[in-house]
């Protein structure tokens, strides 16, 4: 995602990124970032939570008007589900092809060290 924002921004169009992994923004020089501590696949919030989604979008848009280059702002409202439930339900029904491949390898890089 950093390359998407950086390339569009460099073409003269302002960008803001809403992400659950602001870690990458700090490493790759993303112009404006709103970090959300949400499970993968749901950057604007829970399905049907119109008010919550609107608030996240509004916070991102505010950064377009007011933020300095490279800013990373943390969205401070917690995810409404218990952590274990959120960790379980964001995953796809089957492991992704890469994970499935690794799990079959003797030198699986996901093995505990």
């Amino acid at each position: 995602m950093p390359v998407l924002a950086r390339t569009i921004e460099a073409a003269g169009i302002a960008t803001v990124v809403v992400t659950m992994m602001p870690y990458w923004s700090s490493l790759y020089g993303v112009p404006r970032t709103l970090g959300v501590e949400f499970p993968f696949g749901q950057p604007f919030g829970m399905p049907k939570d119109d008010a919550g989604q609107r608030a996240v979008l509004r916070a991102a848009l505010d950064l377009l008007e007011n933020a300095a280059p490279g800013i990373i702002v943390a969205w401070d409202r917690p995810w409404p589900q218990p952590i274990e439930e959120a960790r379980r339900t964001w995953h796809p029904p089957d492991p992704s092809p890469l994970i499935a491949y690794w799990l079959q390898q003797p030198d699986n890089p996901l093995r505990p060290r």
């Binding site: 749901q42 399905p47 609107r54 509004r58 848009l61 964001w90 992704s96």
Partner: peptide, 25 residues
Amino acid sequence: HLHINNLHIQSDLNIVLPLDRLREL
């Protein structure tokens, strides 16, 4: 998408592409 649970998007597109929320603003 093979790395996330698409059921959430199928129940509400706005969680990834908040077109309805943008229209409201």
